[in-house]
Design a binder for these strands. Structure first.
Lengths: 198, 198, 198, 198
DNA sequence: ACTGACGGGACCACCCGTTCAT
DNA sequence: ATGAACGGGTGGTCCCGTCAGT
């Protein structure tokens, strides 16, 4: 049966995610992963050519899942503001997704600083979001629902908000319900903090 | 002369900052630091008890410099909006400060995920900002210059913006003038993205 | 073949015995052992978790071999004096046994002074001998073949003799035939040095 | 004042004795000695050329003290048996001497196994005792107070007894009053264990 | 006489990846 | 496809001894 092979592979990936999250990429040894997954080194190197290979696969998995959510949102919506708020919800949900430990993101980014291959993969979606929100805002400005402003700047702010909340969720996981916070933040951003002189 | 000792110590710290930024904490070897600093391992371990010790000192230096800038701002200002904008300028300036490599921040945060001692030191200032902006916003609301909103939420957004821009500056250093971007972002946040129905 | 593994393991143990005997535990490096045994460090640490682990195993091997000889003697004899003299022969034979370098005993004892785990293992057999000889002497006194004396004291003397001869054999290996000396010493001890006033 | 220098020197020696006894020669670092003695490394190497040098000095001190006691005994006595018993008392007193930790003896002997210079110094007194007791026994035989026996063998036994008791005192310090045990042992040795057929 | 910064080297433990046998 | 032995190399830490300076 070929299921056996895939199960081993899956278990290794699963364990690696946990260990990389808890201890970091460099601090986690291959032997450690094998022991935790209950397999031998032979099995590990049969499925993955390198320690880095498993890391890349983890990264790709993560990005794929993000893209799926991203694409789903893009389809079903019409209004610009609606789109943005739903995106906020998605980001908000990332915090709660138990199986994806947030801190592995830091690991991805840290490694991306050095390895160009990882950098490319890890940074690409960020650019995609940037351009997506940029055009989304432009659309909003054109249709009159948003104020006239630099759409690129606006996109940058939205992405900043998402990244910043992510970081804070890492620093202080129990601080608030980061999912709710995410939505409310976007609202406040849309309306502005300054009182309007009506 | 006791200057000699301090110079060695300073050179080690300086080199360590650079190498940690470029290659990361774990990927940087003590021998590498020693070689780059032109000192022997004996000298290194005379000044620092551990590789971690030098990392902690780097972290403390960084936080101290941040606090100094923070405190200076707090004194000279009056209006709430003024304060916030000037803070934005400070954060913006961090990007340009040549001697402080941004990516060491990622290193700090990554390590903080594992070492409780580092975590405490690295997370403390974040909380300080949180409470500072929170009370600053409350003040603004009381004096009528800001809209009625949850000040804690607002503070979280501001911090998010700062962190998020920092991350983006890391991902795409040459993308924009992140210093200018920082100021303009705050402006936009204050006014809101949504068009006012005058 | 699983013989290969055991051969490697045995070769490491063998080499370690020699080197520890010649240079001492602390002065002998793991790399040195590996080089002398013709294996890599990877192989070493695959078989032994620590440098200390190999030392403990050496100690245990030694004690086991001692116990076997001890037990064999205990069975085949009847008279008390006979038993004692045969024991003397055994101790005497230790000096000649080529494959067991005597000076590793000093190493065992020296290390036992610091490491409680080693101490326990190294000191246990000494106590066993103490009680064994004590009861053996008591038996001799009861059956009238030995003079009335404190059996514990007598046992202590016998053990002292064995230990003392061992030490002297270490200090002056070629001084005498320590095997013969051992037997004669026991004889003299039994009869006493002082002239009997017949 | 030149007293200052000697005090420093003495303090170093004192501390070294303790540390070598507790942790062994190799496990004790020069820096450790300096720290415990409250002096700098410069001071240490001003007084002693090498770590080994201080060890040799300790050894010599120890041997000198032994020789003094040895010589004192030799003078005041007349009978052979008297001499031997008084010697036993001396050895017995070594156990109680608080300022000389016994376990440093093991250290001396262990090091003697490797370093010829130490070996010569450490083994010399042993030979002196050997010849001294040998002639003492011969004297006893000649004057008729001792049985006819090989005086060299007898000397070896006496030295063995002393060494063996020393070792046992190391292994089981609180086991008995080793001072008393020493005297009684010699008595028993003189009379013999075997019952005399009167 | 004494200080302490410093040089250079070694050591133990570990780690990643390979290989041979099953 | 999997397991265990193994190779070769690195990494942080520590240690002995020196030397310029006080």
């Amino acid at each position: 049966m070929q299921k056996r092979s895939e199960m081993t592979r899956a278990r290794i990936l699963e364990v690696a995610t946990t260990l990389f999250s808890q201890q970091g990429y460099e601090a986690t040894g291959v032997a450690e992963i094998c022991h935790a997954a209950g397999v031998s080194k032979g099995a590990f190197y049969h499925h993955f050519s390198t320690k880095q290979a498993i890391f890349l696969e983890l990264l790709e998995d993560w990005l794929n899942r993000l893209d799926i959510a991203f694409e789903q949102t893009r389809q079903g919506t019409q209004t610009v503001t609606q789109s943005i708020e739903i995106m906020a919800g998605i980001v908000g949900n990332i915090y709660q997704t138990a199986d994806i430990n947030l801190s592995i993101l830091l690991e991805f980014w840290t490694q991306a600083q050095r390895d160009p291959m990882i950098w490319q993969k890890a940074i690409a979606p960020y650019r995609r979001y940037q351009t997506y929100f940029s055009s989304l805002l432009q659309e909003g400005i054109d249709e009159g629902s948003l104020r006239e402003c630099n759409p690129k700047l606006g996109a940058r702010i939205i992405v900043s908000l998402a990244l910043g909340l992510l970081m804070q969720a890492l620093f202080d996981p129990g601080g608030t319900d980061w999912g709710r916070e995410s939505k409310e933040s976007i609202h406040l951003l849309m309306d502005g903090l300054v009182r309007r002189h009506e």
